[in-house]
Amino acid sequence: PRPDVDPPPPGSSLLFAQGQLITHIPLAGSTLQSESAHTVISLHGSITVGLAFDCVDNMIYWTDIAGKTINRASLNGGEPQVIINTGLLSPEGLAIDHLGRNAFWTDSGTDRIEVSKLDGSQRRVLFDTGLVNPRAIVVDAPRGHMYWTDWNREAPKIETAYMDGSERRVLVSEDLGLPNGLTFDPYSRQLCWADAGTKRLECVYPSHGTRRRFLEGLRYPFSLTGFSGHLYYTDWRRDAVVSATLNQELEEHLPPQRSHPYGITTVFPQCPPGNFFHMHH
């Protein structure tokens, strides 16, 4: 299917993490509304890395590598709440399954991928082998798939499995460098990643594997999000959020705070289409 480039649902916006700040950038269509970007959460002393959004409860979820915790708070303010605060060393990737009400995260200190309910209960390890530098993780909730990156310099890879941890396999292992960012576009059903080694954004259709380059010549991409033909990534050399479409960089949001931006995620006004029609196991 040709990648449909219809604009994102009206009212979509972005959230990105930078040290102790989580900043919200509204979108007009797919255009960054930089002048109305504002800090939604300021977390004393935390280094926020992984960021995810639950479209059902309008809750922001994030990992803090300084406090070694996973936390959540409502998008419209309210006190943050810790959901996981044990057994974490370097929690960097986070994904929310809004249908199954589960949170998935990667930890490059324990080299594990774990899952728990959204309140942190029923926690279990999904994978604790074959991981060196796991980082980004995303889910395709309706189809029950999860995807993650491992920027192991000896053997970088992007893997997939069902959300219950079954049928794990390597999806991409060729021509990868430092796959730091990953996003699954529920509209075009493409999986895209940001690679600080090859300096590229690339996409693949998981169902049939055709892969293509989305943008080249990036400086130092870290995290990635996107939908319907537009991708937004954080860059460590530019300390900025950059927007792009196929083969073309569009805009840049330069936050006032001069520090590395980390995780970035999309806030949809309503949950993307699709509910359980393929429940595995």
Binding site: G19, Q20, T39, Q257, R258, S259, H260
Partner: peptide, 29 residues
């Protein structure tokens, strides 16, 4: 900026290497 509905003042553009509500912490790295 003053956070809406609170007395909390948050610095928004700490110099390079600094972060925290009042730029009282060092950034990662």
């Amino acid at each position: 900026v003053q956070k809406p509905g609170t007395q909390e003042i948050v610095c928004t553009d700490c110099p390079l290497g600094l972060s925290g509500k009042h730029c009282e912490l060092c950034s990662d790295g």
